[in-house]
């Protein structure tokens, strides 16, 4: 069960990126996962929700896309600008 750690890494990356856009709030993050990445999508979604809530980011959505081979990449974040 390393999906919680992966969820935390995604949240860390979102925070780093959002910090470059003062006043903006991240609402969605897109992640691409390949079939050989060794990551369970359902478990990652569950962990992500839990980790986001713990960090007070309950409104942040995770969108998973089907990737190739062992891909485990961040593709985009969506920001709500003030």
């Amino acid at each position: 069960m390393h999906e919680f750690g992966i969820a935390q890494s995604i949240l860390e990356a979102v925070r780093t990126e959002a910090a470059k856009h003062p006043g903006a709030r991240a609402v969605k993050v897109g992640v691409r996962i390949g079939p050989m990445a060794g990551v369970d999508r359902e478990s990652l979604s569950f962990c992500f929700q839990a980790a986001a809530e713990m960090d007070g980011d309950a409104g942040l959505a995770l969108e998973l896309e089907e990737g190739a081979s062992d891909e485990l990449d961040l593709k985009y974040i969506e920001l709500e600008e003030p």
């Binding site: 990449d73 593709k75 920001l79």
Partner: peptide
């Protein structure tokens, strides 16, 4: 709403 493209590994810290 702004979509910011990112091209980075999820585990970039580990990498």
């Amino acid at each position: 709403m702004t979509r910011v493209p990112l091209e980075q590994k999820v585990l970039s810290e580990n990498d």
